[in-house]
Design a protein around this nucleic acid. Structure first.
Lengths: 180, 180
DNA sequence: TGCATATATATGCTAGTGCATATATGAGAT
DNA sequence: ATCTCATATATGCACTAGCATATATATGCA
């Protein structure tokens, strides 16, 4: 259900179309929750059906019409209910750990390749988080006129960076241990 | 597809029934990949269909009959193909980060509750990883007569503990920052 | 006798995910 | 004149997940 709740959270800043929401996802929560355009539209149907959101057709000149979605009372209530309830911590479900678990089946060279690929990928993501995402977040804060909320957005970003650095550290240590 | 590949990896230690696999999951990879009994049975059908595994009916006295599954040549090949291919690092998809992102909507007390619940849950899991899981892993290594492979099992466990400690550290820091 | 538990497999139903593709308008570039 | 890109919404299909429930035998316990 989380996608729907993230949409509730974003619509709380103001009415948006599915297209806008997709853009907003990329500019804001994408660093911890990636999604797909089709999932957003389908979530919006479901939420309209449930009564959490409603829309008005917006006729546009020179552009296709759009559906402007906004929170209903019920949607606002659901957002606040969800926000305050501690969520169960889920299982890791990381594919690379599965590979490592059966690492005895692999040669040293193959294991190196796996770890090095992971390190490269983590570095790349870390670079995006440290350079690209802060810009997105600032632009997002300005567009939504929500300077105070930015503190929390940066907090989630801080977690992402902290976690990536930890994962990098661990992977580099594991790589060194492989040589012993 | 990962569940199927984890099953391939476990069947590589020897033939097992769906029931055995379920038990084995709980004793081995459960700390990074939880699953359900029904998913294992359905995965086995699919894999039989694909030709990765095959089974023989095992008639038992005093107990229900079982299907003993084992790897086919194709299954063994698929396991090794999969093991050596670096997997893309996925997005975090952590629900609690979504809550934190919209933290400006919450009171200080509600935020405290969220972080404290997370800390308690992380501590609990850490306790299991540090005390319970090593026993499971040892028992598993003995049962499967795979003392060498245990090194890698402990490596994945080490990651889990490392990560939980990091997450705890971060959550505790965030809680302190909340008081400022 | 009745109830819980372990062994063992299987199905039903609902929801969510991922990816590709369809459709349509208009703007700007080559 | 054509091609690409941005805006905007929607569907198809196959797979995956989660949870409940059905079925059957045998053992142990109260």
């Amino acid at each position: 259900m989380t996608l729907q709740h993230l949409i509730l959270g974003l619509l709380n800043y103001g009415p948006m179309s599915g297209y806008d929401l997709n853009k907003t996802f990329q500019a804001s929560v994408q660093h911890f929750w990636d999604t797909d355009q089709s999932l957003i539209y389908r979530a919006l149907y479901k939420m309209t059906d449930t009564g959490w959101v409603e829309y008005v057709q917006q006729v546009q000149e020179h552009l296709p019409n759009k559906k402007l979605y906004r929170l209903t009372e019920a949607g606002y209530a659901e957002l606040h209910r969800w926000l305050a309830v501690p969520q169960p911590t889920l299982s890791f479900h990381e594919v690379w750990l599965g590979q490592l678990f059966f690492g005895a089946q692999l040669s040293n060279a193959e294991l190196r390749t796996l770890l090095e690929a992971r390190i490269a990928s983590l570095r790349e993501t870390l670079n995006v988080y440290e350079n690209q995402v802060p810009e997105n977040v600032s632009a997002f804060a300005e567009a939504f006129n929500a300077a105070e909320d930015m503190r929390y957005w940066l907090l989630t970003l801080d977690y992402g960076i902290f976690r990536l650095r930890g994962d990098l550290q661990w992977a580099e240590r594991a790589l060194r241990q492989l040589d012993e």
